[in-house]
Amino acid sequence: MLRRLYDWTLALAAGPRANAALAGVSFAEASFFPLPPDILLVPMVIARPDKAYRLAWLCGISSTLGGMLGYAIGALLYDTVGLWIIQLYGYGDKMEAFREAYAAYGMWIILLKGLTPIPYKLVSITSGFAGYDLVLFFFLSLVSRSLRFLAVAWLLRRYGEPVREFIEKRLELAAILLLVVVVGGFVVVKYVV
């Protein structure tokens, strides 16, 4: 089953709807979707290394726009949708502390967390909830999310062939490593941040 999913993802990554799928996942992840866009970005860059940076920019811009939806959820729908999403990540009781941290360090929170595998939807929803400046949020998100995906693209352009060989030879281990990164981001959010 894992091999079929991998083959399907590679086919999607090389297919005509790849860019739309990447943009959709990037947008959704920044506001409500649990999986990072790397699940599509990595195979797409491996399949088309000549388009690595273009794909990274697509990912960064789409993620920033999705972050605007997350911001709106935090600003306008926090008591319903926003709180539910935040509670899924175990942050429901920490929102007042988050709001205070945003008042003092909002710029650094957005920049640093935008570069990490920590779910960005937490940053976008909290920014809206905290009433962080929308224009500044947009530009900080664009910088941090674009840098994050450009770094992935650069690494894959440089080391893509060995990565592809590793994934294809050890697919189960690669899937476990991806799962560890995704779950690790959630664990960091719940217990460390």
Rank of each mutant, 00 (worst) to 15 (best):
M1L: 13
L2R: 03
R4W: 06
Y6S: 10
W8K: 15
T9K: 08
A11C: 10
L12G: 01
G15N: 01
R17D: 00
L22H: 04
A23L: 14
A23Q: 11
F27M: 07
A28H: 02
E29M: 13
F32S: 05
F33T: 12
P34D: 06
P34N: 13
P34T: 07
P37M: 12
P37E: 05
D38T: 03
D38N: 00
I39M: 06
L41A: 02
V42Q: 09
M44C: 11
I46S: 01
R48H: 15
Y53P: 05
Y53E: 06
R54Q: 11
R54F: 13
L55C: 06
L55M: 05
A56E: 02
A56Y: 05
A56Q: 09
A56M: 10
A56H: 09
W57T: 11
W57G: 06
W57F: 15
L58W: 10
T64S: 10
G66V: 04
M68H: 02
L69K: 05
G70E: 08
G74E: 13
A75C: 03
Y78H: 06
Y78F: 15
T80A: 04
T80Q: 09
T80G: 09
G82Y: 04
W84H: 04
Q87C: 02
L88C: 01
D93A: 07
K94P: 00
M95W: 03
M95K: 06
F98V: 15
R99V: 08
E100L: 07
Y102I: 01
Y102V: 01
A104T: 12
Y105R: 14
G106H: 02
M107P: 10
M107Y: 12
W108Q: 10
W108V: 13
I110Q: 11
L112V: 13
K113F: 05
K113C: 07
T116G: 01
I118E: 00
L122C: 01
V123H: 03
S124E: 11
S124I: 08
I125V: 12
T126C: 04
T126V: 07
T126I: 08
F129H: 11
L134K: 10
L134V: 10
V135L: 14
L136K: 14
L136C: 00
F137A: 14
F137S: 14
F137W: 06
F138L: 15
S141D: 07
S141L: 12
V143D: 06
V143C: 09
V143K: 08
S144Q: 12
R145E: 13
L147F: 12
F149M: 11
F149R: 06
F149G: 08
V152A: 12
V152G: 01
W154F: 12
L156R: 07
L156A: 04
R157E: 12
R157K: 13
R158K: 15
Y159F: 15
P162V: 08
R164Q: 13
E165R: 15
I167N: 01
K169G: 14
K169C: 04
R170T: 01
E172Q: 14
A174W: 03
V181D: 06
G184Y: 09
V187D: 00
K190P: 00
K190Y: 09
K190L: 05
Y191F: 15
V193G: 12
